[in-house]
Amino acid sequence: MQLVDKDYEGAIVLFWKALNSGDRVDSALKDMAVVMKQLDISEEAIEAISSFRGLCSKQSQESLDNVLIDLYKKCGKIDEQIDLLKQKLKLIYQGEAFNGKLTKTARSHGKKFQVSIKQETSRLLGNLGWAYMQKMNYMMAEAVYRKAQMIDPDCNKACNLGLCLIRQARYEEAQLILEEVLKGKLPGFDDSKSMKRAQELLKELRSMIPEQYLSDFLGLDDELIKGLEQLVNEWSPVRSKRLPIFEEISSFRDQLAC
Rank of each mutant, 00 (worst) to 15 (best):
D23N: 10
L124G: 08
V181E: 00
I78L: 07
D70P: 01
D154C: 15
K17F: 00
A158F: 00
K17D: 07
S250F: 08
R197G: 04
Y138V: 07
Y93Q: 14
M133H: 05
Y171W: 11
F217R: 05
K147A: 11
N160Y: 11
D5W: 08
D5C: 10
F113V: 02
G76N: 03
D152H: 15
L243N: 07
K185S: 09
V67G: 00
A131I: 12
K6P: 01
D154K: 10
L55K: 13
K86V: 08
K196T: 04
S60P: 00
A97Q: 10
I82V: 14
D31C: 05
T105A: 01
Y213F: 10
Q2R: 15
E179I: 00
L68F: 03
D79I: 14
Q149M: 15
E180K: 09
C164A: 11
D216A: 11
M136K: 13
E9C: 04
I245M: 15
E47G: 01
L161H: 03
I46C: 06
D221T: 12
F113T: 04
E9R: 10
K37A: 07
N156P: 00
I166Q: 06
A106S: 04
L128H: 09
A97N: 11
A106L: 06
C56K: 06
L228E: 07
R123L: 05
R167E: 15
L182W: 09
F98I: 02
S240W: 02
Y213H: 08
E47H: 06
E44S: 09
R206N: 11
G10T: 07
N99H: 12
K88R: 15
D65P: 04
D222K: 14
Q255D: 13
S63N: 14
K58S: 10
E80V: 06
P210Y: 00
R206Y: 09
K193V: 10
V67F: 01
K196G: 01
L220R: 05
V181N: 00
G22W: 04
Q134T: 15
G54L: 05
M150L: 11
L55Q: 14
Q168S: 13
K104R: 03
E173S: 15
R253C: 08
D154L: 07
V35H: 01
